[in-house]
Design a protein around this nucleic acid. Structure first.
Lengths: 165, 165
DNA sequence: AATGCAGTCATACTTTTGAGTGATTTATTG
DNA sequence: CAATAAATCACTCAAAAGTATGACTGCATT
């Protein structure tokens, strides 16, 4: 009786109850088959039936234990690829080299940025608290430095060479 | 001797040699222990030794089989996060919805694109083999549909709502 | 002290852009 | 067939953009 509780505990520990119940039933049937064979071929005496059963049980669980403990576990690996879209515009940095090469001043860059936002010269002038003529001068100088003729081209070029976002 | 080669073949088939060699050794020792017990307690006769061994082997492999076949495999889910840097310009698709909602025609869109490239109205007219006045009409209509006042604003808005690159 | 540069502003002038209006032609669609 | 939308063009007028030139200031470098 002490043995059966120990077996029960082991079964609990393994935690695959359903399969082991099925297995226990098949095992019990095999034992019955053996008992039947005892009488058929007169190989065993009655008093040794229990002993054979214990041997069978012991080696069965030894096999289970060996398989569970010494065998590397079956692992089914499912690889899920999760796509993460990275926005490119987040890490915008001003191309300092172009600014230096073309000698574009801070003020000119300011004007260029407001231009790209679609402001008129008058609006830029008001925003920066200077006269309309000053903005015209700045933009004229800008066009020369960017080698363009119009503000739309200036915006296009400036974005391409990376001096505005 | 036929038995041991059979066992060896089965062990080979299972392909977990090292653990099963250890197991085989421990099993052999247990059989020796049982043989020792045979003489100690006089439970078994010599002629049944082979029978006991077969029973032990059979139930051992039954246990191994049961453990391997009836055990559900452990599912290991590996989530691989795959970073995809999206070039904003590469996968550009025209926002058809905005075009339809604002009722911007094909020709107007053409003019808008050339505008964004920095062309003047006269240059656009020459490019499309139409008169300057036609381009003016197109751009005027565009500005109304985009709810802007200037071409620079038109470009800005058009890019934002995704109707041009 | 002299030089150079960025930033400012002005004046005069030309070109481009844009608003407003109206008209014609050509498909397409109900 | 009539209605509609798209595309075309013209004309006028006003506003904005852009060119060219010169000048003044403050600041830093030489």
């Amino acid at each position: 009786m002490g043995e059966s509780t120990l077996i029960y505990c082991k079964l609990n520990k393994i935690k695959q109850n359903k399969e082991f119940i099925m297995y226990a039933i098949s095992m019990a049937m095999l034992l019955l088959l053996l008992r039947f064979l005892e009488y058929k071929f007169l190989i065993l005496q009655n008093e040794f039936g229990l002993y054979i059963g214990i041997i069978a049980l012991f080696f069965t669980f030894l096999g289970i234990w060996a398989s569970n403990k010494l065998t590397s576990p079956k692992v089914k690996t499912i690889v899920i690829e999760k796509e993460i879209v990275v926005e490119k515009r987040l890490d915008f940095v001003v191309n300092e080299e172009e600014l230096n090469n073309r000698k574009i001043s801070k003020r000119e860059l300011e004007v260029l940025e407001l231009m790209a936002q679609g402001l008129s010269n008058q609006e830029i002038a008001s925003r920066l608290f200077v006269s309309l003529n000053t903005i015209k001068t700045h933009s004229s100088n800008l066009f020369q430095k960017l080698e363009v003729k119009r503000r739309t081209q200036a915006i296009e070029t400036a974005k391409k060479i990376g001096i505005i976002e």
